[in-house]
C-alpha cells in the first residue's frame, strides 16, 4: 500500500506540491490526472527520489517503509519503478547491457542471486518479444534512434524485467499513436496483480480506455482536488480542467 501524507515539495525555492494526500491500496491501479503544470511530473520524481526536489513536509510510505531519505537505487530495490515521460538516450550502452546491469543490481539489493549470461538472455528475449520489441532493439544503444513509441515500449520492457511492486507511469501515453498505445496498455495490463500497485499519471483520459483504473484523482495546483471512480475521467474528458483552474482553498 502506498500512503502519501501532506506532501509538500519545492524546486529551486518554488513550492510545487502543496500538501498531497493519497492512498493507493495494494493491487489497485489509480490514475492521477491534471492540467499541465499541476505538479504531476514533480510527484513522480519525488516518489522515485530524483535529486533537485526539496521535500519540506509530509511523508511517503510504501508498505510501511518511509521512502523519503532513500536514494533512487534504494527505492528501486524496494520495488519502486518510474516509467519516464522522456526516456533518456544513453549512447554507447546497449539496451541489453543496461537491462542486465539493472536487473542484477536490483536482484542483488533484494538478496537474490544474480542471473548468468544465458538465463539473462533467455529472459530478456522472452520479455522483449512479449512487448513487441525485436531482438535488434536489445542490441542497440539505450533509446538512441528509437521512435517515441519504441522508447515508451522500452520503458514497459524494463518494468516487465524488473518486476517492481510500485509502478509509476508518467505520461506514458504522450506521443503515442493508437496502435502503440494498445501495445503499451496490453503490457501494463499483463502486469496487473494483487501484489502490484500502479499509479498512472496522465493528462488525457485516452489511456484509461485501455487501462481501467480503480480510482481517479485530479491533481491541480499541487493538491489532490477531487477523487472518484473511473467515471471521473470521462467527466474530465468532457468538461476539461476548467473547474480546477482557480487556486481553490
Amino acid at each position: 500500500m502506498l500512503e502519501i501524507h501532506n506532501l509538500h515539495a519545492s524546486i529551486a525555492g518554488k513550492e510545487i506540491l502543496k500538501g498531497i494526500d493519497l492512498t493507493v491500496p495494494a493491487g489497485q491501479v489509480h490514475a492521477i490526472m491534471g492540467p499541465n503544470g499541476s505538479g504531476k511530473s514533480t510527484l513522480s520524481y519525488v516518489l522515485s527520489g530524483r535529486e533537485g526536489y526539496t521535500v519540506t513536509e509530509g511523508s511517503i510510505e510504501w508498505n510501511g517503509e518511509e521512502l523519503l531519505g532513500m536514494s533512487p537505487e534504494q527505492r528501486a530495490a524496494a520495488g519502486v519503478f518510474l516509467a519516464m515521460q522522456y526516456p533518456v538516450e544513453i549512447p554507447g550502452v546497449s539496451n541489453m547491457t543496461f537491462l542486465k546491469a539493472s536487473l542484477n543490481a536490483v536482484r542483488k539489493a533484494r538478496g537474490e542471486s544474480e542471473l548468468d549470461a544465458m538465463q539473462m538472455l533467455k529472459l530478456l528475449r522472452a520479455k522483449a518479444k512479449a512487448i513487441g520489441l525485436s531482438e535488434d532493439m536489445l542490441k542497440r544503444a539505450v533509446n538512441v534512434g528509437f521512435s517515441g513509441g519504441e522508447k515508451k515500449r522500452n520503458e514497459i520492457l524494463q518494468m516487465a524485467v524488473l518486476e517492481p511492486t510500485l509502478c509509476i507511469l508518467d505520461e506514458t501515453d504522450s506521443g503515442l499513436d493508437i496502435d502503440a498505445l494498445k501495445i503499451i496498455a496490453d503490457g501494463v495490463n499483463a502486469m496487473r496483480s494483487p501484489k502490484r500497485t500502479m499509479l498512472i499519471i496522465t493528462h488525457y483520459q485516452r489511456l484509461l480506455d485501455y487501462i481501467a483504473p480503480d480510482a481517479v484523482h485530479v491533481l491541480a495546483y499541487g493538491k489532490i482536488r477531487k477523487s472518484g471512480g473511473p467515471e471521473l475521467a470521462k467527466e474530465l474528458e468532457q468538461k476539461g480542467y476548467i473547474e480546477f483552474s482557480g487556486e481553490a482553498a
Binding site: R50, S71, P72, E73, I90, P91, V93, S102, A105, A141
Partner: peptide, 20 residues
Amino acid sequence: FYLRSRGLNEKEAQAVLVEG
C-alpha cells in the same frame, strides 16, 4: 538518475556511462 532509478548505485551508474 535514469540508471539509479533502475537500481544501479552511483558508482555503477557512473561506470556504465563512462564505458558507453
